[in-house]
């Protein structure tokens, strides 16, 4: 039964190749997207840390996004 499932009456090579290529490609895109997102979060946090403490406080008070990105970055490290 398992052999039939794998061989798929001779079409297994085509079916499995198509599914494998699709899922590997999707995984690579996901991994690359996640890596880029984390890199930008880190760059943003670094840039924020370069500011003086007064400036940083103002930025974090004024921008919800800055607060969230910093929180997300701090969580990931």
């Amino acid at each position: 039964m398992i052999q039939n499932f794998i061989l798929m009456n001779g079409y297994g090579i085509f079916v499995w190749a198509a599914f494998a290529i699709t899922f590997i490609t999707c995984f690579i895109l996901y991994y690359k997207t996640l890596k880029t997102l984390k890199k930008h979060e880190k760059d943003f946090a670094d840039e924020l840390n370069k500011l003086s403490s007064d400036q940083r406080t103002i930025v974090l008070e004024k921008s919800k996004i800055a607060t969230k990105v910093l929180a997300s970055y701090n969580k990931s490290i």
Binding site: H40, F44, I65, V69
Partner: peptide, 9 residues
């Protein structure tokens, strides 16, 4: 969005 925010920081 983060990229744009970083530019305008």
């Amino acid at each position: 969005i983060i990229r744009i925010k970083k530019k305008n920081l």
